[in-house]
Design a protein around this nucleic acid. Sequence first.
DNA 1: TTGTAGGCGTTATCAG
DNA 2: CTGATAACGCCTACAA
Lengths: 336, 336
Amino acid sequence: MRKNIVTVAKELNLAPSTVSKVLNNNGKVSQKTRDRVMAYVKEVGYFQDASARILKSKRSYTLGILFSDISLVGLEHPFFSSILQSFKNYVEKEAYEIIFVVSKVGEREMSYLEWCLTKKVDGVLLVSGNLNNPYIKELVASDIPCVSTDFIMPNLTTIISDNELGIELSIDFAKKLNRAYIDMIAGPSTSIAFQFRMDHFHKVMNKPVEPYFVIEAKGFGFQSGFDAAVRLLEQATRVPDYVIVGSDDLAFGAIRGFESKGYKVPEDISVIGFDDINFARIYSPALTTIRQDKKAIGEMAALKLIQMIQDKEPKRTELIKIPVILIERASTKIKM
Amino acid sequence: MRKNIVTVAKELNLAPSTVSKVLNNNGKVSQKTRDRVMAYVKEVGYFQDASARILKSKRSYTLGILFSDISLVGLEHPFFSSILQSFKNYVEKEAYEIIFVVSKVGEREMSYLEWCLTKKVDGVLLVSGNLNNPYIKELVASDIPCVSTDFIMPNLTTIISDNELGIELSIDFAKKLNRAYIDMIAGPSTSIAFQFRMDHFHKVMNKPVEPYFVIEAKGFGFQSGFDAAVRLLEQATRVPDYVIVGSDDLAFGAIRGFESKGYKVPEDISVIGFDDINFARIYSPALTTIRQDKKAIGEMAALKLIQMIQDKEPKRTELIKIPVILIERASTKIKM
DNA sequence: TTGTAGGCGTTATCAG
DNA sequence: CTGATAACGCCTACAA
C-alpha cells in the first residue's frame, strides 16, 4: 500500500497540512521541520498523488496541445513537431507537462473547451487549427489561457515567423544577384503563413518596376510545386530568373518542374524556398531558403503561455513575430 | 459554478450513484432513467471531472509515452513521430489519451515509475530508450503494462519491423539484378534495429560465396553515410556493385560519397536504403529502399498495450515483427 | 432498480 | 509556525 500524506505526517508527528506546505513550498514552515520532512519523504520514497492534488487545487500543471484538422498527421509534420518539441522542452523545465487535447472520448463527442475543463488544463497551445471551427472559437473565447503558433484571432496571442521579413530578404537577395525577373510560387492560402508571404510579395513588388507573376500551388507537396512551376512557365510572358517559393517542400518540386521544361537551376532560374527543413541542404541542388526559427517559436509560445497563466491577466490580441534569416546554398549560386 | 454529479442527481430526483452508473455505463439502471439522465446531462452540459474520477477509480485512461535519451528530439524524429501518431490515433478511438512521461517535475527528479504512479497511467509506450537506463528497467519490471517499439528486454512486449526480412529482400534483389559484389553500410549498433540488420546480413552472406565488406557508420546522418561510403571504398579489396545501407538517411550520404570518388549510382554501384522516409522518393536518384510500416507498428503497439491493460495478464517477453516491403526506385535501376 | 454513506489523497481555512 | 477539519467530485459497496 502506498503511503499517503496522512500517514507520512503521522509518522513524523506532524499534521498533513504541514507536510503539504513543505511539499509545495508555500506557507510558513520552519526550516527545521522543512528539512525533516524532505529527508523523510526522500527516505521512504513518498510521492504525491496527482489526481487528488488536481481535484483539490483546481489546476493540473498540465498544458493542452491542440492540433485541429490536421490532428491525424500533426506529429508527422516536421514544422509543427519541431515547434512542439521546443515548447515541450521549455515547459518541462518549468514543471508543466503536456497532454493532447482531444474532442472525443470513446463514443462521446465533446467540445475542446469541455475537455479542457474536465482535465483542468492550465492553458493550451494551439499548434495549428482551423479558424472556422466553432470549438476553437469557443475555447479562445473562454477563460483558459491560449497561445497559437499558426493563426490569428481576436483575444489570442500568436507567435509566428516574421514572414514579411523573409519575403524582403528573398527579394533583396535577388537584387544582390542582379536578377530582374522575380516571380513567386505561393502555397495554398488556406494557411495564414502562406497568405502573409504572398500578400507581402505583392506589396513589395507592386512598386511599378517590372511585371511579375504569382502562381498559387494547389497543395503542400512536391507534386504541387512541380505543377505550379510548369504553370508559371506557361502563364508568365517572359521566363523568370528568380523564383521565390512559399515552402521548401514546394520548392523541391518547383525545381524539378523547371528542369522538366529545360531550364537549369540555378543558372537559368534561381529558386529560393521558405522553412529550411532538414532536407534543404541535402537536396540537389542544395536549396537556398529562409530559415524559420522553430525553436524560438516554441519557446516563445511556452514563455507567453506560462506568463499568462501566472499573471492571470485578461486575454488580448497579440502578434509576436520571430525573426528569420536567409540561408544561401546552391539553388541560387550563379557565377557573375 | 460548474454542476457536479450531486446537483445533477438532485435536480433529477435521483441518487448520485444512479447518475454515475448511467454515465459509466455499468450497473443496472432502467432504460427509462437512463434516457432521462442522458437527456438532462446533454441539456445542461454537465461533464465529469477527470481528477475526481481518477482519484477514486485508481486509473486514468491515460497512456504514457516515453522517449528516454532522445527525449529532447523525439518528436522531431520522423520514424518515431510516425509511430506515435498512429498509436495516438488508435488509442483515442478506444477512449484513451496520451501524455508524455517525464522524469523531472521542476526541480524534483523522479523515476519514470514514480511519475507513472503519481499519474496513475494505465500503461506506457516505450518509443525509444536506453536499455541501460535503470529507471527503464524499474518501469518494465513494475506492474504497469509496457510495450516497446525499439528495444527488447525480459518481460517486455516489443513491436518492431521484420529487419531480417528486409535484409533478405535486399539481398535477393541484388541477385535479381545480377549484382555480385554486395556490401553493407550499417548504422551504429547502439540501435537494436541496426544491430539486427547487420547481424542478419552477416548470417545470410556467410555462406562461402564471395567475400563481402561491412562498414559501420559512426552516426545517423548524411555525413556519417558519406564518410562510411568513402571508407568502404578504401577498405574493400574490390569495388562493390550493390550496397545495402542501414537507413535512408545514411544512404543519402553514401550515394554522394560514392559519387565523390567517381562512381555512378546506380550504374556502377546500386544503393538500397532502409525506412522509406518521405524524402526517399524525391532524392536524386530516387532511393530504392525497404519500407517500414510505421502505421502498423503504432497500431499493433496500441492494440497490444490496451489488451494488456484490459486482460490484466502477467507481463511476458514477446517479440512481434511487422512485415516490410521493398520499394524499387532509381538508385538500383540498371539496364541489363 | 435505486439510494445511502464512506472514503480516495490532497489542500485551504482558520484556529491555536 | 503548526494543527484540526472540511471540502474537492466521484465511485463502490451494500442496504433498501
